[in-house]
Amino acid sequence: MKSERLAEVTWTPSMLFRWAGWLLGLALGGFFDGILLHQILQWHHLLSGVEGAPWTDLRAQVLADGLFHLVLYIVAIAGLWALWRTRTQYGLPGAGRSLWADVLIGFGAWHVADAVLSHWVLGIHRIRMDAANPLLWDVAWLAVFGAGALAVAFWLRRHRGGGTPRNGRAGCTALFAAVVITMAWSMRPSPEANAVLVMFKPGVAAPEALMALARIDATLLWSDASGQLWAVRPGAGHRASALYRHGAWWVSGTLVPAACLGWFKA
């Protein structure tokens, strides 16, 4: 009985509304880093700072990037669900500003946690792996997107005012649209990618992989030492997705684009 009463008190519509903002802010923070740093600038992979086998294997790096975005999709969907379930809150005074304040809290918290845990405690990557002074990039990124976002969130909380139901609904609708657009953008294949990345299943030897690639008249651009990860350019009139019938475990830009995985450049 006590646990049931606690659940009722904790998950009120107003609390769920706040959780919607926090979750969507976390997701947007992760998507922002993934799209800008992993895809467009390609300054690091999720595990670029991890040394030793099997983490230095590009297959592990590619898989980690894909799983990173998969987790973000789950967080974003949970936030969108919470936002939809609490749509009765949209018309309350100050709802729009409160929601965006919570989004910025989640966004800033993402960058604070990423800097402290990923950059300094675990050391799995830095903002710019090839920088002469990576700490400078880490601190600057944290100051702008971590502390800066939290400062704006605090300001919105203190100056949220009354607002109107129309403004609250517009703010919530804008957030919903922003998250959906960001998720869709993160899954698009790179317009500049010059290769299709193919990962074959464990046990597929290099000669078997070459035979499979020959079926799509592929031009070979690169392969890792294992012979299971290949960068190729399919021949004219051939679809890379055909490789799924010949031992491929994953092919970039097919089925689920898988975000960072589709932005590999040979």
Rank of each mutant, 00 (worst) to 15 (best):
L47I: 13
L23Y: 01
A64Y: 03
V139R: 02
P134H: 05
G49R: 02
G49N: 02
L80W: 00
D130T: 10
D130W: 03
L46K: 01
T88M: 12
L136N: 02
L92C: 08
L46E: 07
A82H: 13
Q61S: 11
A131K: 09
T88N: 14
D102F: 13
L28R: 08
H38G: 07
D57Q: 09
R59P: 02
V139W: 04
G94Y: 10
V103C: 11
A149F: 13
L72I: 15
A113L: 15
N133D: 15
V152Q: 09
G96R: 03
V62T: 06
A64Q: 05
E51N: 06
H111D: 04
H111V: 00
P54S: 03
L142M: 08
A64D: 02
W22S: 05
A149R: 12
A149S: 15
Q61M: 14
F145R: 01
T86N: 07
H125V: 02
L46H: 06
A131I: 09
G94D: 11
G29C: 08
W137C: 05
L150R: 07
D130H: 10
R85M: 03
V103E: 05
W43D: 01
V144L: 14
H125C: 10
A153K: 09
D57C: 01
D114W: 03
A131V: 01
A82S: 12
V75S: 07
L122C: 02
L26H: 12
G91C: 03
A147L: 15
L142K: 01
I105D: 06
W137G: 06
R128P: 00
L67A: 14
L58A: 11
L117G: 09
G79S: 09
Q42H: 14
P93G: 07
G146C: 05
I40K: 00
G106H: 10
F107W: 12
G34E: 06
H38N: 06
F145N: 11
I40L: 10
